[in-house]
């Protein structure tokens, strides 16, 4: 495997053939915001929060292969605003009531809003979905009012668990995540599935029953710092 270099915001990044821009950036300790991408799952390029400009084109850093000599822009005011708008639209699409959500403090959407300095979702009209909570399963519940359609549970179920508990239904703005049964109890979902593990769902949609709020405020993942800090710590050594 041969190596090459390219730049992100002027910083030289070492890469290997076949690596995406995000993979190379992660290895070099440069964090590119993302929501649908998750370690151990195949890339999807769905949420577009990882949008960067490579050679003047807007591309998803999680799926775009790095190229020798490429010039990538990531943390420019324009791209940061675009990411903030994307995140804000996700807040408007669902019912993201952080103060009462058990994912608060561990939620990647909330943490991304903080990282991108989104103060309050005020730009767009709220869609205010009203979907019933599916609590039929003895150990797992689904509140799809909080789903951001990242598809991480779909890929985890299919690729890691060898199941197809989750999948997309509908098209366009109506596309959303659903289960392959009349409700979750009528699927082969199990609490041991990777798809329902604590860190696959980035928000509070997939709920592991009877664990909510057991981690004290101050000890939750993003109480310790911004999302992406673990990648950036690599760079600082």
């Amino acid at each position: 495997m041969s190596g090459f270099t390219f730049t992100i915001d002027g910083t030289e990044i070492a890469a290997e053939d076949g690596q995406t821009i995000m993979e190379a950036a992660d290895a070099a300790g440069v964090y590119i915001p993302r929501l649908c991408d998750h370690e151990g799952l195949r890339h999807q390029g769905g949420c577009r929060v990882c949008t960067v400009k490579a050679g003047g084109r807007s591309v998803a850093a999680c799926t775009q292969p790095a190229a020798p000599g490429q010039t990538v822009e990531s943390e420019t005011p324009h791209i940061t605003k675009l990411r903030r708008d994307l995140v804000e639209m996700l807040f408007h699409e669902g019912n993201h009531l952080c103060p009462i959500c058990e994912a608060s403090g561990n939620c990647e959407l909330q943490a991304m809003a903080y990282r991108l300095n989104m103060t309050a979702p005020t730009k767009f009209p709220y869609l205010e979905p009203c979907r019933a909570v599916d609590a039929s399963h003895p150990d797992i519940a689904l509140d799809t009012n909080r789903c951001i359609s990242c598809g991480r549970c779909i890929r985890a179920s299919l690729d890691v668990d060898g199941k197809s508990v989750f999948g997309y239904v509908g098209r366009g703005i109506h596309r959303r995540v659903a289960v392959n049964g009349s409700d979750l109890a009528h699927t082969d979902a199990a609490i041991t599935d990777h798809a329902v593990s604590a860190d696959v769902c980035p928000v509070g949609c997939i709920i592991r029953k009877r664990t909510g709020f057991t981690t004290p405020i101050g000890e939750r993942e993003f109480d310790h710092g911004l999302i992406g800090r673990k990648i950036e710590e690599k760079r600082r050594g």
């Binding site: 103060p99 009462i100 058990e102 909570v133 664990t211 709020f213």
Partner: peptide
């Protein structure tokens, strides 16, 4: 109504 039991102490305090 419809919310999950462990959410209740956090929701109703609002």
């Amino acid at each position: 109504r419809g919310r999950l039991l462990w959410e209740v102490p956090v929701i109703v305090q609002r």
